[in-house]
Amino acid sequence: MTTTLRIVSVAFSSGFLLLIFELVRRKKLRENYSLTWFFVGVSVLVFSLFADKMDFFAKTLGFALVSNAILVYSIFLILVILLGLSVAVSRISSQTQKLVQEIGILKNAVEKADKNAKNTGK
């Protein structure tokens, strides 16, 4: 990994970490969803800082370049995060479904109660 690439990589991952931190601080991102992203940012930062010490691992796994190993690692993590998001969206959809059905049935009951109250009031 060239020095230039390492500097760029360190700068980007530090910026990324700051961004996540800021989003959590402003409550635009919930802590539970931020943890996996922190993990991505921190590990890419660490790998870039110590790229020279990673050479042996990358070569053993069959990567020609340390940067390739970092890239593949990041993509894999992102896939895991995306799958986690799909699971989260599915859970939210089920919750929305239950709420919408409950609201519909409740509104129907309230309307009927209103009508009854008016009729007995007369």
Binding site: V100, Q101, G104, I105, N108
Partner: peptide, 21 residues
């Protein structure tokens, strides 16, 4: 007798609302 769902949720959800009722 009318139940108004506040959002468009698809036929399955509408149907199940009927069964819940």
């Amino acid at each position: 007798n009318v139940i108004d769902l506040p959002l468009n949720m698809g036929i399955g959800v509408a149907m199940q609302t009927g069964y819940k009722f």
